[in-house]
Every structure is written in structure tokens, then in C-alpha cells.
Design a protein around this nucleic acid. Structure first.
Length: 874
RNA sequence: GGAGGCUUAGCUCAGCUGGUUAGAGCGCUCGCCUCACACGCGAGAGGUCGAUGGUUCAAGUCCAUUAGUCUCCACCA
């Protein structure tokens, strides 16, 4: 047994304990036909990433779950890994190159990719090492990367399979273009942001007429690509013009006036310029009316060769130039200020430009149907279930998913274009020739896939798919996916889609969606605000256990939490409390095992029974993923029940002369302590393991002990109730003394009058320690003469302390009257229920019985108070 | 425009399928260095659970309306 220092120091412990776990191989997921599997795959953090509180939240929840299941006897597997994070990583390396005065084009694709891999190998393990500081019990031997060989094979297989089924296609469609990242991004990757902008009214002259049509636009530069003007079919103002054309100013292009009910007659002038290449709605209208498509922007959002003299201008410069020219021509009617939502790139916040571009898409509609079904029918359960609605809403309105990215870092699309016949060959193995014309003049598509495409396969690609591996057979489908609600669409939805399509099975049975961590003011943590909190600093200051416990308590699924340092401090204090309980237990220990004694005292049965109840409830809460509630119950048990009461209760025995009593107290003390440490272990793995290692108990590590569960032989409801009587008496005496400002150093005799002397005699020894009694007398009746005595009353006892010199009788009367009034009020409320026939008829029997018991208790208290009041008057 | 969350003690939040006198942490007041712990111990003050209406024997908990607030989706140029 080791001597423990007075204060718990997580810094010296955590690293050591983690290494011990690793050396023990306890994190390893082992296929065991005798056991049920329990699998979690980690939401792979970006390789470019640094640990932030969001990760800490996510990992903590997963670690609590997986540690619990492991202890409950499941074959637990937590698969870790990282995500190649296409754009984010490529940007990092490009920044590095820029510092050297180079661009990726200077290097060329191959050399550039080599640089990225180099970068990945150098920094990619950083986030993994940081995850370990939290105590994450991942099976690190199974660590995966979305671009490793296996995952890449999975990606290719899925791409080809979907292509063969016609669910992936290439098309020239309107997409969101980020001019900074110079790539297409999906709808989900566009964030909308309300901005103040202009609404310009432009005059378009009607051909062969003096008339004009006035159109309104927020992006005047796009007029260079206008190929029509639309009005509403029922708009009488313009009906006569439909079929005619206008001359597009500046470009001097004749474009048709068309009628389409997309146009809102009420808005603006009721006429809309049509730019099919640069507006999604115009694109659709254009398709309906066969409008010409003219792309006027290039990849850097500069006007291209179709923009005439404006070629080369940036989109905003072009706007100025176009407006100036129109004004000079007298064609600019007015400018209004206008608030509108602008789409921005979620990676770099640049305003995205809608434009037509040849890209690859996944047809979502046929896939979304089944993916929605499995959530609707409960094959996949969302926790909390309100996210089903959000999910449904998205699934029912999903657009085709643009999956190609004009990047280099990522999974290159396995498609080859034939320069002879234009056929596209998509293949699982690199083709030598065009599958249609046989020409060897084929060029591989330069684009890579959206990072989320590979993430979508994560639950099965990490288990070995497309190979039929034993892991896949045993551990798939996974049990629960834990992630923040903000990637419900990006990731969760697409995993469900991919799982159903490829595996014909759900990728996970449950999805635990948690909130975001905000700062103390409720703001999102971000680099620009500078309000980010580094979990590594927190761990350094308070310890990983404190951080974990802070995150998990006082929070319910799906809700955001604000991070407060003070809460971490409170949890650090809790860790220290446990630490000192351990010190107490150990310094009193002469035994070397934690088996229970044969003879149990009243308070032993009380604490065992209390623990039993907590163990039961904690298991239930954990089963329902109510981690915060479970944590709270353990906290309360340890602090209140075990430390504040039970430890104090054992002191007389431990310091007494009776050898059997001493040993008995030690055994129960140690037993309950080790059990509750196990219960707590998933939440606070480090300190519980450190203490376990110091305790003289069997078992090489607490993390592989079995999780406590309810035991019929430790259920002592009768003794619990009896002991509560003693506790109530002790509390009453303390309160009374406190009210009278009696210092703890001033002891007094206590005489107890009770109808249940047996119980109080069993608890006799504790009044000295807990109620500052110098001597205790237990009788059936109250003393005849109350002269010089202060009375304290509970429903089960009246207690008399010779402290009368400290109070005056008048104040005493007032106090008792007040207590009596309160008790009477309480009784009245209960009786109101019990005399209500409807209540008696309709309420559950257990509820009625409980009310009756309450009434009895209230009556007993009042009776005792009355007795004291009467005696006071004598 | 559509959907959802939140509104409970001074602050930050729990409160599961409706049923004790609504809880915790921090803060506050009073008394304690009591032989595990002052990162502590004991005692206490503090809430008409946003508002209104309803269902029910019973509502912080369910339903409707409403206010404030946050978020997501859509995007009328």
C-alpha cells in the first residue's frame, strides 16, 4: 500500500496511468464469440486539427460509453482515425508553399501530393496524441485514415458501384463555386449570411421599340451573362411583350422576353433578368425555356472572355464598371439598399459564386428514401429524437450532391475521359484503354472527391470493407455514433445513405447527438473572436478527469453547453474529495481484501443499500444515454452519502476497541469505495485507476473490472428507513445548535425520547461524533421536568439538550409555533389529496399509499411538536 | 417563409416515461483549521419553474396560444 499525498495531482498520474493501460493492452477490441460486440467509430478529426473543446466533449462521451460497455462485459471496440480533410489540409500546405514563394502549380500534382503526405506524416499524429491526454480508450492498433489504402479502396468501390447503378453521374449543372478555394462545393458546404447590399434597377430597351423593361438585380455584373428576361405569365403589364426581345445593354445582345411563373409579380418591377449560368433559379427557368447559357466568370471569379471588354476584371470591379457604364448610358434607374442572404464558403467564408460547371453528382432522391425510412421506423434511433424532424426535413428536400472538387488532395475520381470518342470510363482498376472505342487516348479526370464522400463510408471502411474481414462480420453494424448535431447533414445522413446502399444495413443503431461548447458568454468559440479555450490548458490546470466530468454533468443530449472554468474547478475539487476519501480508507486499513463482513451494522446496511440503488439507477441511466444524470448520481453518492455520512459513521468503530467492529467497518468501507470507484471509472478514468492501483485489492486494473449492478442481497429497505430516523435526528440537533450558535467544541448531553428506542440505540454511538453529544440517554418518555432543556423534534423522536441558558423561553415558543404551522400546512396539503375521492379512485395505489405514509409522518411530527409546546407552557 | 431549441434560485444549468415541501455547482450569510480533505466541515437565505388558457384526481413536466431569445433549413431577382 502506498502513502498518498494530501492533494491529488493529476499531472503526475495521468500520463503514467495511460501508459499502463496501453501496456496492458486493455483498449484492444477482441473478437469473442462468447461476448456481444459493442462498437463505436470515432468521428475522425481533421489531420490538420488541434484538439478543441468540441473534440473533448465528443471523445469524453464516447469514452464513457465504451468504458462502461467494456466493464459490462461486451467485446468493446472503439475505432480511432483521422480525416484527410481535403480543402483544409491542402490550404495548409499551400500556405507553406506560399511562404517559399511557390504555388502548387509550380510543383505539379505529383510533387505537391508528396508534400502533403509529408506534412500529414509530420503533423497528422498530433491530434491523436492530444486525444490520448483525455484518456480515450481507443484501439490504437486499429487507427485508420480516410486516405489509407483500405479506405481508398472502399471509396473507389462505392464510386464505381454507384456509377454503375446510375446513381453517380457527371453533368454540367449549376454549383456553388468558391473563388478562394477554387473548387466547387456542395450545397451543404454553403453557409448563408445576411448582408447589406444593393438592389439595382436596370433598364433593358425592348427591341424595335422605345419601351424599356426595368429589371432589378443584386449582382449587376451577372447581366453580362443574361440570356433572357422573364415576367409572370399572368402579368397584364407585360403580357404584350412576351415573345418579343430586349437588347441587352453593354453586350448588345438580343435576348427573349419569356413568361414563367417563377416570377413574383409583387416583387420589384415584376421582371427578372435571366442568367442561367450564374443563378440556380435562372438555370431552371432557362432549362424550361431553352435559354442560351453564357458563363461569364472564371474560376477566380474574374470576368472571362464572354464578358467582352470587362474580361479580366474581378467580379466586384466588374460590378463597378458595369454600373458606371450603364449610368453613362442612362440605363441605371436607381439603387436601393437591400438585405439579403449571401452564400459563403464554410471553410474560408468567401462569397460563393453560383455557376454552371461540369461536375460529378450523386443522385440523392432514390438513396434518401431508405435512409429516411430506417430513422422513421426506429432501426436507427436518434438521441434526442427531436433531430428526426430536422433529418426528415433535409432528407425530403435533398438535392443531388456535388461530389467533385477541383483539388489535388483527396481521392482522385476513377474516371477516364477518351479524347477520341468522349466516352467516360469508370473502373475499379486503372484502365489502359477507352471501354467504348478502345483508344488508349484516355485521360484521368483531374478532380478529387468531396472529403465527406469518404467519411460517409467510415463505419464500414474502418472495419475492413470491401474485404469480408472478421472485424466487419463481428463488429458491424456499429452500436452508437456520437457526434455534434452540426454535422447531421454533412456526415450522419450520408453515412446512413452509404450504409444502407452498400451494406444493406444500418451503419449504427443509435446516434447520440450532442451540442456545441460555447464560451462563458454563450458565443461560439472561434479563432477570430479569440475566445477559444484549449483543452490541453484545462487538463494541465485541472486534470483530464475534471474536464471530463465538467463536460458530462449538467448537460443533456443535444443541448449546447457553456464552458466555465469554475465548473472545472468544482470537479477538480470533487476529484480531490475522492482522493482524500481514498487516503482515509487506506490509512485505516489493516485488511487486504474487500469482501463484506458477515455481521453488518445498521449504517452498513444503509450505505450498501444506498449504493445498490445508485448502481441500479446509474446502469439504467447509462442504458438510456443519460450520462449527465448518471454522473450526477455518482457525484452525490460519493460526496454526500459516502464521505459526509458513511465515513464519519465508521470513525467510532475504526477508532474503537472492538476488533471485530474495526474489521467490519474497514470491509464495508473498502467494499463500497471500490464499487463506487468502478461505477465512476468511465467518467473519471485516471483518478479511479490510480486509487485502484494503490488499494490492496485483487484485479490488475479497474478499467477491466466488471461494472457494478444491482444485487438483491444488498437491498435493505427496512434498515435504510431506520437509519434515516437517526440521520434526521442528527440533522435536527445540528440545526438547533447552529441556530443557537453553539460551537462544535461545546458538547452537551442528549436525551432522546422515542417510540423506537431500538433504532436509536443501534445508532447511539454516532451522536457523539455527529451531534456533539457528550452523553446519550434513550428513553421511551420525555423527562418530566423540562427546566433547563432545549427540545429538538423529529417525527420519530424528541431530543433534549441542556442548553436552555442560551435561549429564552419566548423565542422558543415562537420557534415551535413556526415549526408547527409549517408542519400543519404540510399535513393539510396531504390530507386535501387523501380526502379527494377522485384522487383515491384514480391515482395509482402506490401513490396513494405514499401519501398516506406522508400523512402519518406529518402527524407524528406535529404530535411531537405539540408535546414540546405543552411542556414548555408548564 | 418553414422547422426546432431555450426561457427553472444572483450566475450557469439538471429535473427521465406527469405524483415527496422543485435540485446541483458557483456566489451569498452564519459558525467551524472536528484526528481524509479549508480544493474542506456544519447550518442557512434565495425560486408564484417566461405569460395566458386547457387536459388531468394531480403539470416545471402533456396540449394550445403568446412573448423574448438562439439555431437550422429554404432563399424573391
Amino acid at each position: 500500500m502506498r502513502e498518498l499525498p494530501k492533494t491529488y495531482d493529476p499531472k503526475v498520474v495521468e500520463k503514467k496511468i495511460y501508459d499502463m493501460w496501453m501496456a496492458g493492452g486493455y483498449f484492444k477490441g477482441v473478437i469473442d464469440p462468447e461476448k456481444k460486440p459493442f462498437t463505436i467509430v470515432i468521428p475522425p478529426p481533421n489531420v490538420t486539427g488541434q484538439l478543441h473543446l468540441g473534440h473533448a466533449f465528443d471523445e469524453t462521451l464516447q469514452d464513457i460509453i465504451i468504458r462502461t460497455r467494456r466493464m459490462q462485459g461486451y467485446a468493446a471496440l472503439w475505432v480511432p482515425g483521422t480525416d484527410h480533410a481535403g480543402i483544409a489540409t491542402q490550404i495548409k500546405v499551400e500556405e507553406q508553399l506560399r511562404a517559399e514563394g511557390k504555388t502548387r502549380f509550380d510543383l505539379g500534382r505529383e510533387a505537391f501530393l508528396e508534400r502533403v503526405w509529408q506534412w500529414k506524416n509530420q503533423y497528422g499524429s498530433r491530434i491523436i496524441e492530444q486525444l490520448k491526454t483525455l484518456g480515450s480508450s481507443c484501439d490504437w492498433d486499429r487507427e485508420r485514415f480516410t486516405m489509407d489504402e483500405g479506405c481508398s479502396r472502399a471509396v473507389r468501390e462505392v464510386f464505381v458501384a454507384l456509377y454503375e447503378k446510375g446513381l453517380i453521374y457527371k453533368g454540367n449543372r449549376i454549383i456553388n463555386w468558391c473563388p478562394t478555394c477554387t473548387t466547387a462545393i456542395s450545397d451543404a458546404e454553403v453557409e448563408h449570411e445576411e448582408q447589406e447590399g444593393g438592389l439595382w434597377h436596370l433598364k433593358y430597351p425592348v427591341k424595335d421599340s422605345d419601351a424599356f423593361l426595368v429589371v432589378a438585380t443584386t449582382r449587376p455584373e451577372t447581366m453580362l451573362g443574361d440570356t433572357g428576361v422573364a415576367v409572370h405569365p399572368e402579368d397584364k403589364r407585360y403580357a404584350h411583350l412576351v415573345g418579343q426581345s430586349v437588347i441587352l445593354p453593354l453586350m448588345e445582345r438580343e435576348i427573349p422576353i419569356i413568361a414563367d411563373d417563377y416570377v413574383d409579380m409583387e416583387f420589384g418591377t415584376g421582371t427578372v433578368k435571366m442568367t442561367p449560368c450564374h443563378d440556380p433559379n435562372d438555370f431552371l427557368v432557362g432549362q424550361r425555356h431553352g435559354l442560351e447559357q453564357i458563363l461569364v466568370l472564371d474560376g477566380d471569379a474574374r470576368i472571362n472572355e464572354n464578358g467582352g471588354k470587362y474580361q479580366g476584371l474581378d467580379r466586384l470591379e466588374a460590378r463597378k464598371a458595369v454600373l458606371a457604364d450603364l449610368e453613362a448610358l442612362g440605363l441605371l434607374v436607381k439603387k436601393e439598399t437591400h438585405r439579403r442572404n449571401v452564400g459563403t464558403c464554410y471553410r474560408c467564408s468567401t462569397t460563393v459564386e453560383p455557376m454552371t460547371s461540369p461536375q460529378w453528382f450523386v443522385k440523392m432522391e432514390p438513396l434518401a428514401k431508405e435512409a429516411l425510412e430506417v430513422v422513421e421506423d426506429g432501426r436507427i434511433e436518434f438521441i434526442p429524437d427531436r433531430f428526426i424532424k430536422i433529418y426528415r426535413n433535409w432528407m425530403e428536400n435533398t438535392h443531388d450532391w456535388c461530389i467533385s472538387r477541383q483539388l489535388w488532395w483527396g481521392h482522385q475520381i476513377p474516371a477516364w475521359n477518351c479524347t477520341v470518342c468522349d466516352h467516360i470510363t469508370v473502373s475499379r482498376t486503372d484502365p489502359m484503354a477507352c471501354e467504348q472505342c478502345g483508344s488508349d487516348q484516355i485521360v484521368r479526370d483531374a478532380d478529387v472527391l468531396d472529403t465527406w464522400f469518404s467519411s460517409a463510408l467510415w463505419p464500414f471502411s474502418t472495419l475492413g470493407w470491401p474485404e469480408e474481414t472478421p472485424d466487419l462480420a463481428y463488429f458491424y453494424p456499429t452500436s452508437v455514433l456520437v457526434t455534434a448535431y452540426d454535422i447531421l447533414f454533412f456526415w450522419v445522413a450520408r453515412m446512413i445513405v452509404a450504409g444502407m446502399e452498400q451494406m444493406g444495413e444500418v451503419p449504427f443503431h443509435k446516434v447520440l447527438l450532442h451540442g456545441l461548447i460555447r464560451d462563458a458568454e454563450g458565443r461560439k468559440m472561434s479563432k477570430s473572436l479569440g475566445n477559444g479555450i484549449d483543452p490541453l490548458d484545462v487538463i494541465e490546470t485541472y486534470g483530464a478527469d475534471a474536464l471530463r466530468f465538467n463536460i458530462v454533468t449538467g448537460n443533456s443530449p443535444g443541448n449546447d453547453i457553456r464552458y466555465h472554468d469554475e465548473r472545472c474547478e468544482a470537479m477538480r475539487n470533487f476529484a480531490n474529495k475522492i482522493w482524500n476519501a481514498a487516503r482515509f480508507v487506506m490509512m485505516n486499513l489493516t485488511i487486504t481484501d474487500n469482501s463484506l463482513p458477515e455481521a453488518l451494522e445498521l449504517e452498513d446496511k444503509w450505505v450498501l443499500s444506498q449504493f445498490n440503488q445508485v448502481a441500479k439507477e446509474v446502469n439504467e441511466n447509462l442504458g438510456k444515454y443519460e450520462l449527465g444524470i448518471a454522473a450526477g448520481k455518482i457525484y452525490d453518492f460519493i460526496w454526500d452519502t459516502y464521505c459526509d455520512w458513511y465515513i464519519e459513521l465508521t470513525k467510532p468503530r475504526l477508532n474503537g476497541e472492538d476488533e471485530a467492529g474495526k474489521i467490519g467497518a474497514q470491509r464495508v468501507l473498502l467494499y463500497v469505495f471500490t464499487e463506487v470507484l468502478k461505477l465512476l471509472h468511465p467518467f473519471m478514468p485516471f483518478i479511479t485507476e490510480e486509487i485502484w492501483q494503490a488499494l490492496p485489492v485483487e484485479g490488475e486494473a479497474i478499467m477491466i473490472e466488471s461494472y457494478p449492478a444491482w444485487r438483491a442481497d444488498l437491498d435493505f429497505p427496512v434498515e435504510e428507513a431506520r437509519f434515516e430516523k437517526i440521520m434526521a435526528a442528527v440533522r435536527a440537533i445540528r440545526t438547533r445548535r447552529s441556530e443557537m450558535n453553539v460551537p462544535p467544541s461545546k458538547k452537551s448531553t442528549v436525551r432522546i425520547a422515542t417510540e423506537d428506542p431500538e433504532t436509536f440505540e443501534a445508532g447511539q454511538v454516532y451522536f457523539g461524533k455527529l451531534a456533539y453529544a457528550s452523553e446519550l440517554t434513550i428513553t421511551a418518555d420525555a423527562p418530566d421536568d423540562l427546566q433547563g432543556l432545549v427540545s429538538v423534534v423529529t417525527k420519530d423522536a424528541r431530543m433534549f439538550l441542556p442548553l436552555a441558558e442560551l435561549v429564552d423561553l419566548a423565542a422558543e415558543r415562537v420557534r415551535i409555533d413556526k415549526e408547527m404551522a409549517k408542519a400543519q400546512e404540510n399535513l393539510d396539503r396531504i390530507l386535501k389529496k387523501l380526502t379527494n375521492e377522485n384522487f383515491l379512485a384514480k391515482a395509482k395505489e402506490s401513490v396513494v399509499t405514499a401519501e398516506q405514509e406522508k400523512a402519518d409522518k406529518a402527524r407524528a411530527l406535529i404530535q411531537n411538536l405539540e408535546e414540546s409546546r405543552r411542556q414548555l407552557e408548564e
